[in-house]
């Protein structure tokens, strides 16, 4: 018998290396666990909570839970699917996620997860945020009301581009994404359109100023294929070598 370390997701064996999280091992094994704030080239974060799994009756985020040998993990249960859908619904209700008026519709990972998890609507009262947008940068635009606070951009800038570009400020309902400059303007940071961080936003918050409609609505990434098959990929993402 092999002495490979393994745990189980919905009875399926998943091999892992010591130090890997459940998500990292699952991703390496080609098993999709829905997520937004996880990226395999960046440190785990655990803020979106969409990757919740059940272990011994309690709910954990797969992206921050270390893999241990022979762990029994439940992922595709109807209860978890419902809660994941509710989390997606909360994110929709929280921000300005009005798909028909958004440039990334069809390429958006939040929207793709909504499709995949069977969301048609949400019952929550929309929160209608009202944050200051930032159009200062020549190549990039920040539509603040669409931020889901996943901090992929923050981490990508630090860990892949080695630049201090983004940060999260405030708290609770008043949490906001900001540019690390006295002016709080993106133009005054070192980010360029070629940086990893400029191509990692999973929603329509950090947008390129050019080329948004080159591929028409209806023919985009998640129009063609559901996210559980396609994975969390932007059509323009950069090579993820850190």
């Amino acid at each position: 018998m092999t002495d490979t370390l393994q745990f189980f997701i919905d009875q399926q064996a998943v091999p892992f290396q010591p130090g890997q999280t459940l998500m990292q091992a699952a991703q390496a094994a080609g098993l999709y666990i829905p997520h937004l704030c996880f990226h395999d080239g960046l440190t785990p974060h655990g803020s979106c909570r969409v990757c919740i799994v059940e272990i011994n009756g309690s709910i954990r985020a797969a992206c921050t839970t270390p893999a241990t040998a022979n762990l029994q993990v439940h992922s595709e249960t109807s209860a978890l699917r419902t809660q994941r859908r509710q989390l997606i619904e909360l994110l929709f209700a929280e921000g300005n996620h009005l798909c028909p008026s958004c440039e990334v519709s069809g390429n958006c990972q939040l929207q793709a997860l909504a499709y995949d998890l069977g969301m048609t609507h949400y019952e929550f009262v929309p929160l209608d945020p009202h944050r200051q947008n930032d159009g200062s940068h020549p190549d990039l635009f920040i539509e603040q009301d669409r931020c889901i606070f996943c901090e992929l951009c923050t981490r990508s800038a630090q860990q892949q581009d080695h630049k201090n570009v983004f940060g999260i400020g405030g708290r609770g309902a008043d949490t906001y994404l900001f540019a690390q400059a006295d002016s709080s303007r993106l133009a005054d940071t070192a980010i360029t359109a070629q940086d990893h961080a400029a191509h990692i936003c999973p929603v329509g918050c950090i947008l390129p100023k050019q080329g948004s409609y080159q591929i028409p609505i209806g023919q985009r990434v998640y129009d063609e294929q559901p996210i559980h098959l396609r994975g969390n990929h932007r059509p323009d993402e950069q090579d993820a070598t850190p």
Partner: peptide, 18 residues
């Protein structure tokens, strides 16, 4: 709420309104 995770940040706001 510190605002870090979705359920607490967005959920408590929505819960209060609802």
């Amino acid at each position: 709420s510190c605002g870090f995770c979705t359920p607490c940040r967005a959920g408590t706001q929505v819960l209060l309104r609802d």
